[in-house]
C-alpha cells in the first residue's frame, strides 16, 4: 500500500474519531448536571496538556513530517488507558442511555486501535523523528466515588479527548496534503 493511501485511510479514521467524540459530548450535554460545567477541571488539567503542540497553522506548517507523525502517535498512545477507562466505566454511570454511551465509547476504542495500527505502518514509510516524543502517563485510575463527580470526570476526560482527536485529525490531514502535491480534488 502506498503512502497516499495509508494517509487517506488514517485521516478517515481520525476524522471519524473526532466526529464520534463530538457526538458523544453532545449526547452527554443534554443531561449534564447544571453545576457540572462549573465544577469541571480546566482543559489545562488534561493529562496530555504538557505535550507541546503547534497551536496555529503557521506553527503546524513548520513542523517536519516525521515530527508531526510522532506527535500524532504520542497523542494517540496517551489515550490508550483513559479510553479503556471510559468504556469500562460507561455502563456504571448513573446516566440515562448509558448502554448507548457504552457502545459509542467502545467504538472510540476500536477506531483508536485501528488508527494506531495505521500509524505504525506510516512510521515505516515516513521514518521516525529525531525528536522522540513519549506518550503522557495517565494517573487517574478511576472516576471517583460519588455519582456527580464520576459523571463530571467522565465528561472531562471526553472533552480532553475531543480536543486531542481534533489535533490528531488536523495534523494527519496536513500530512495527507503534503504527501500529494498534485491532487487538486483533495487539497
Amino acid at each position: 500500500v502506498g503512502l497516499n493511501d495509508l494517509l487517506d485511510r488514517a485521516s478517515q479514521l481520525s476524522d471519524k474519531l473526532h466526529s464520534l467524540s463530538t457526538s458523544l459530548t453532545h449526547d452527554l450535554d443534554t443531561h449534564f448536571p447544571p453545576m457540572g460545567k462549573i465544577l469541571m477541571p480546566r482543559p489545562s488539567m488534561c493529562h496530555t496538556a504538557p505535550l507541546q503542540t503547534p497551536n496555529d497553522k503557521d506553527q503546524a506548517l513548520k513542523v517536519p513530517e516525521s515530527e508531526l507523525l510522532s506527535l500524532v502517535r504520542a497523542l494517540l498512545v496517551s489515550w490508550n488507558d483513559p479510553l479503556l477507562l471510559l468504556s469500562s466505566e460507561a455502563p456504571t454511570l448513573s446516566y440515562p442511555y448509558n448502554g448507548y454511551i457504552y457502545s459509542k465509547t467502545r467504538e472510540l476504542q476500536e477506531n483508536s486501535h485501528n488508527l494506531s495500527a495505521g500509524l505504525d505502518r506510516l512510521v515505516h514509510k515516513i521514518g521516525t523523528s529525531s525528536k522522540s516524543l513519549s506518550p503522557l502517563p495517565f494517573r487517574g485510575g478511576d472516576l471517583g466515588s460519588d455519582r456527580n463527580s464520576r459523571l463530571i470526570n467522565f465528561y472531562f476526560l471526553l472533552s480532553c479527548f475531543r480536543r486531542d482527536s481534533h489535533k490528531i485529525d488536523s495534523f494527519l490531514k496536513l500530512l495527507r496534503c503534503r504527501a500529494v502535491k498534485q491532487r487538486p480534488e483533495m487539497c
Binding site: 497553522k57 503546524a60 490531514k173 496536513l174 496534503c177 503534503r178 487539497c187
Partner: peptide, 9 residues
C-alpha cells in the same frame, strides 16, 4: 480558506 495545505477540508 486554505484548503490547499489541508488546514481545512
Amino acid at each position: 480558506v486554505d484548503t490547499h495545505s489541508g488546514w481545512i477540508t
